[in-house]
Amino acid sequence: MVAQGFTVDLDKPLVHQVGHLGEAYQEWVHQPIVSKEGPRFFASDFWEFLTRTVWWAIPTIWLPVVCYSISVSIRMGRTVPEVALLVVFGIFIWTLMEYTLHRFLFHINTTSYWGNTIHYLLHGCHHKHPMDGLRLVFPPAATAILLVPFWNLIKLLATPTTAPALFGGGLLGYVMYDVTHYYLHHGQPTVEVPKNLKKYHLNHHFRIQNKGFGITSSFWDKVFGTLPHSKSAKNR
């Protein structure tokens, strides 16, 4: 595609190209290419490897951390019912983080070279190639880095005995989000709830990309007024 005199060559590594699109980047990145084969990001095999993650790596790596964190609060004297409530609250906190990150960070408008490049790596690539199965979940190395400030924030807001379980709940919420996200793109649900979630999320990709930011539910979209209108409501 030609934009501002620059042509993005889809047969070459994309990350160092997309920044040159400037103001045309937002239009380009929201014109999806529906293909299960993902593009090359980097010329370097090492950096390319770091951008690709199989979905099952997420529960395999992070569920043991979840279990350990929860067990720490129990060993420190918290009862099982108390810990269960903390875990549920941690999941609830994650759902708000999920919505906030998706709406205000992943869909930020960028025009500069580095802004476009960073946005493409964070989320733009997913909108451009929504069926790329190896770039649907967040790379574990990046997650590990982001968990450091998240843990420090939890420690600041919670007590020493409640912080681990709260952290474990938040991390569990993230795991549920990432595997759900993968399933909505590549699964074929037959049950009503996941069928509706899949329809809701694909609507965000292919019809109204500035609404419907919730992945695991539409709750926060309803709260903050970003629930997309249905086609039937639009035609009334």
Rank of each mutant, 00 (worst) to 15 (best):
A84T: 15
L85W: 14
F6M: 03
V80Q: 08
Y113Q: 00
F49C: 06
L153P: 09
N210P: 02
L21H: 05
V83N: 01
P140L: 08
N116G: 11
F89K: 07
K12N: 06
S44G: 05
T143Q: 14
T162R: 05
T162H: 02
H30P: 05
L146A: 15
F42R: 00
D11G: 13
G225W: 02
P130A: 07
Y113V: 00
Y182M: 04
K231Y: 10
V2Q: 11
C67E: 12
H107I: 02
L63I: 11
I118S: 07
L50N: 05
T7D: 06
A57S: 07
V83L: 08
A57W: 06
Y120F: 07
L156M: 12
V193M: 14
I215D: 02
E82M: 09
I108M: 09
T226L: 03
L197A: 14
I93E: 00
A3D: 04
D221L: 06
L171A: 02
V15N: 04
F106M: 04
V34A: 08
G173I: 04
F42Y: 15
S69D: 11
L96E: 00
Q31S: 13
T111F: 15
Q188T: 12
S73Q: 07
P59E: 11
P149I: 05
S69P: 10
G133F: 11
T143F: 08
V8Q: 09
F213Q: 04
F49P: 03
G115F: 01
L86C: 13
F138G: 09
N203S: 11
W94E: 03
L202K: 11
F206Q: 09
H20S: 12
Q31A: 12
W94Y: 14
V54Y: 11
F104H: 03
M131G: 09
L147K: 05
V66H: 12
K36M: 12
P140G: 07
F42Q: 06
I93Y: 01
L153H: 08
G212Y: 04
G187L: 05
D132E: 12
N210E: 14
I58A: 06
H20M: 09
L134K: 13
H229S: 13
V148F: 01
R103H: 00
L146F: 12
M131C: 14
P140F: 07
P13W: 02
C67V: 15
G19S: 02
L101F: 13
V29Y: 06
K36C: 11
F6T: 01
P194S: 07
P81N: 07
M176D: 00
P194C: 03
S44V: 00
G212K: 10
W55I: 06
T161G: 01
H204D: 07
T143A: 15
G77D: 15
W114P: 10
G133R: 14
P164D: 00
L85A: 15
P81R: 01
R78T: 15
T60C: 09
L171P: 00
W47P: 01
E98G: 04
G90W: 04
G124S: 03
I208H: 12
H129M: 14
A84M: 15
N109E: 13
G90R: 05
G133A: 14
W114Q: 11
H102N: 01
L156Q: 08
S73L: 11
Y25K: 03
F206G: 14
Q17D: 04
Y200Q: 01
R52L: 13
G187I: 00
D9V: 04
S230G: 10
W114E: 03
W220T: 08
V34M: 11
N196W: 08
L166K: 01
